[in-house]
């Protein structure tokens, strides 16, 4: 029983963090039709910024750590907003293959910037003493930080669903996703919606990176690893569906955790195995609702 419960909790924790990452990809893809490879770069910048802000001399308090994580997400979002104005705003009119390559260029630049600032060697971000222990749930000893991640990510995920389905911004975004020219004709300022949504997505990526930082080794290849993971999740979930992205994130997170516990030999392939199986059985992804199919040309 316990041998199943622990990977399930760890998987839930990493799955929810993956959702924070992948939901931004789903929003930019579903609403703006942009295949944003730079998203992995934002995740990485969030992770390294949190590392920079939290790894000082002496003991690290829980409040200090929390502020570091939030500050890292805000810094990342600010970088995202600037890039939206400078680069992405020029890309909305061009063909998807060019936006893809432009965002790929940004990914390379983010990697280069990280190499310049922190080097290529792996770094590890610290956890505050208050979060590094375990707590006993019945006979099970669960790492506190995983529970914190579950709680925080779940709250943020609920907030995101509320934004998408319960606010005027979400309504306008969904209208744009359905038919941009019609939405625009009805007076929706799609450029503004794009900028807000994009920044929101980048904030979530930065937050996911900052929270993931203590759980992983920080290297400049983080950006690529996580953007591939994110896109795999978006594709598994059914392109452009936020609910599908949530389901897919949890499936991937839990599968990964179980693979690490029970079949470490194949754990590196878990995501790809899920991807191939899903695409063979449901070619459109788990929850595709006639989502926009972007032809990459």
């Amino acid at each position: 029983m316990n041998s199943v419960a622990l990977p399930a909790i760890v998987g839930l924790s990493s799955g929810l963090l993956l959702f924070l990452l992948a939901s931004g990809l789903t929003l930019t893809f579903g609403v703006m039709g942009i295949v944003n490879f730079a998203h992995g770069g934002f995740f990485m910048i969030g992770a390294y910024t949190a590392f920079e802000l939290t790894s000082g001399d002496g003991g690290l308090g829980v409040a200090q750590f929390a502020m570091g994580v939030v500050a890292a997400a805000v810094v990342t979002a600010a970088i995202g907003l600037v890039l939206e104005r400078l680069v992405f705003a020029r890309l909305y009119a061009t063909s998807p293959i060019y936006t893809l390559l432009a965002t790929y260029a940004l990914l390379l630049m983010a990697q280069g910037a990280v190499v310049m600032k922190w080097g290529r060697l792996p770094q590890s971000a610290p956890l505050p003493d208050g979060l590094s222990g375990s707590v006993d749930l019945g006979s099970l000893s669960v790492p506190v930080y995983n529970l914190v991640c579950i709680a925080v990510a779940a709250v943020v995920a609920v907030g995101l669903f509320a934004v998408v389905y319960r606010t005027r911004l979400g309504l306008e975004a969904r209208a744009i996703a359905m038919d941009r020219s019609m939405a625009s004709a009805l007076g929706i300022r799609f450029r503004l919606v794009y900028a807000v949504l994009f920044t929101l997505g980048v904030f979530l990526a930065g937050l996911a990176g900052a929270m993931q930082a203590p759980l992983t080794q920080l290297t400049p290849s983080l950006a690529h690893a996580y953007v591939v993971m994110g896109f795999a999740i978006v594709v598994i979930g059914g392109l452009g569906s936020v609910t599908g992205t949530l389901v897919a994130s949890l499936v991937v997170g839990v599968t990964n955790a179980f693979a690490v516990s029970f079949a470490p030999d194949i754990s590196g392939y878990a995501v790809y195995a899920v991807l191939v199986v899903v695409l063979v059985v449901w070619p459109g992804g788990l929850l595709s609702r006639g989502a926009p199919v972007v032809d990459l040309h």
Partner: peptide, 24 residues
């Protein structure tokens, strides 16, 4: 897979297959 899955899914699928060969 070209005809089974949408364009972006196909691209990501090939990326993922390449990555798993790399891991292998």
């Amino acid at each position: 897979f070209i005809f089974r899955v949408p364009g972006l899914s196909f691209a990501i699928l090939t990326l993922a297959l390449g990555e798993s060969l790399f891991v292998l």
